[in-house]
Design a protein around this nucleic acid. Structure first.
Length: 421
RNA sequence: GGGAUCGUAGCUCAGUCGGUCAGAGCGCCUGACUGUGGCUCAGGAGGUCGUGGGUUCGAGUCCCAUCGGUCCCCCCA
């Protein structure tokens, strides 16, 4: 069959055979966030393009070449390419800062980036996000990191298959000096850098640190540590001590710079050892102490994380982590003969009203075909309605595992089944 | 943006040097069992071999183009 329409490149349907797994990880994420004191926030898919240009950064790959932007009238819109900026926008728009204190917000959202798709990377992907707004202390960083690792472990991933990579990239006070140092380093080795990095040197020199192509050269680039201001150094040391206390293991990755401009101080990623192919970052995040002010709010420290839903699922499957089976229905109502069909439908409704999952044939098929369907749905019981049952207002219940049959009145059907499930 | 690779029934695939090559398994439908599933057996439906050109007496098989999938670089979730 020739397909006239198909899903766009990099966009995928989630079919029933997979959707129960999505529901599973989503519900685990919600429960996990609840335990850590987060509340859900939902923001629109579309925002003004400027929001992301201001926050993620004009020179970032995301904004400069991956964002879906379109114009309608005077306004330029963007489909959200990440989750943090909209949350901060909403935080400001609704004056949440006025309520004081720390706001912990979580979300589940699609996001859009016009990249060439590959394993674990799609044009529409989904993200579990968590943001802590209003907390400057490294306690917040430590809790966030512990929460993220805790999430992966409770899903059944093991510590030896995950790697938490941690870095600090300083703040507006100390980073400029470091940026200059990296830029100078780049200039000294200019001819050995790839074209991309030669261009980055002027716009965003830190990005040369996470270029794989230039890894051999940038390996000997100056580390940030001597450049950190006292506050940043203390913050980072404090965080590392807290992680030790919590027994959260991590590796320092001095090259972890990240591609979004709003990050300050703490940056991190969690890498999966297997299952993802080349795109092996399960999640990424960090602190963005300047973002709230950048978007027009009061100076407010904040931090957050984005976890790739597709990547999480791919990893769980690759690692053979325990995953739930789809829930079968409880009963399949089978009608023998035309006269029984309306009664079968009515009985199915009766079962559903009793919170049971019931199905019946909607094509008026033969008894044999109905039994086949009953078997295929995985129903525990088949409810058989024929002439005899019609006469006596009864139903024959067949246990499809044991083949046992029981006859009882239609009125007590639901109770009987509920008592046995 | 650059590159690799693949494209035969709903699904997974076989098709050897171009000449019954339009196939298998699974799935689906029907029947054996006219009020009873899973197992077995017997039938059946379903494909212009991604599309368009070309070479040839003849192409799923060779060549070119094109469209689509997957994966990789880049970058990121």
């Amino acid at each position: 069959m020739e397909l006239k329409y198909r899903a766009l490149e990099g966009m995928h349907d989630v079919l029933p055979e997979q959707s129960h797994l999505w529901q599973y990880v989503e519900s685990r994420w919600r429960e996990h966030c609840r335990r850590y004191g987060y509340r859900e926030i939902r923001t629109p898919i579309l925002e003004t393009a400027e929001l992301f240009e201001r926050s993620v950064g004009e020179t970032s790959d995301i904004v400069s070449k991956e964002m879906y932007v379109f114009q309608r009238g005077e306004e330029r819109y963007a489909m959200k390419p990440e989750g943090t900026a909209p949350v901060v926008r909403a935080y400001l728009e609704h004056g949440l800062y006025g309520a004081g204190g720390v706001h912990k917000l979580y979300y589940i959202t699609p996001f859009f980036r016009g990249e060439r798709p590959q394993r674990g990377r799609y044009r529409q992907a989904h993200q579990f996000g968590a943001e802590i707004i209003g907390a400057a202390h490294p306690l917040a960083d430590a809790e966030l990191l512990a929460m993220v690792m805790d999430f992966f472990l409770t899903l059944g991933l093991t510590p030896d298959t995950l790697e938490l990579r941690l870095n600090t990239i300083g703040c507006p006070e100390c980073r400029p000096a470091y940026r200059e140092a990296v830029r100078n380093f780049g200039r000294e080795n200019y001819t050995q850098l790839c074209k991309n990095c030669q261009a980055r040197l002027e716009r965003n020199p830190l990005r040369i640190l996470d270029c794989k192509e230039c890894a051999d050269i940038t390996h000997s680039a100056p580390p940030i540590d001597p450049y950190l201001c006292d506050a940043c150094r203390t913050h980072f040391e404090n965080l590392q001590n807290l992680l030790k206390t919590l027994e959260v293991t991590y590796v320092r990755d001095v090259r972890l710079v990240r591609g979004l401009d709003y990050y300050t101080r703490t940056t991190f990623e969690v890498i999966a050892e297997q299952g993802l192919g080349a795109q092996n970052a399960l999640c990424g995040g960090g602190r963005y102490d300047g973002l709230v002010a950048e978007l027009g709010g009061p100076p407010t420290p904040a931090l957050g994380v984005g976890i790739g839903v597709e990547r999480t699922l791919l990893t769980l499957q690759a690692m053979q982590a325990p995953l739930p089976e789809p829930r079968p229905i409880d009963a399949y109502v089978v009608a023998f003969g035309e006269a029984a069909r309306p009664v079968a439908l009515k009985l199915a409704q009766q079962l559903r009203a009793a919170q049971l999952a019931a199905e019946l044939d909607l094509e008026a098929r033969s008894p044999k075909a109905q039994m086949r369907l009953a078997n295929r749905t995985g129903a525990r019981y088949a409810i058989l309605i024929g002439d005899a049952e019609l006469q006596q207002q009864t139903a024959t219940i067949k246990d499809l595992q044991t083949h046992e049959q029981t006859v009882l009145s239609q009125a007590e059907l639901s109770e009987w089944i509920k008592n046995r499930l």
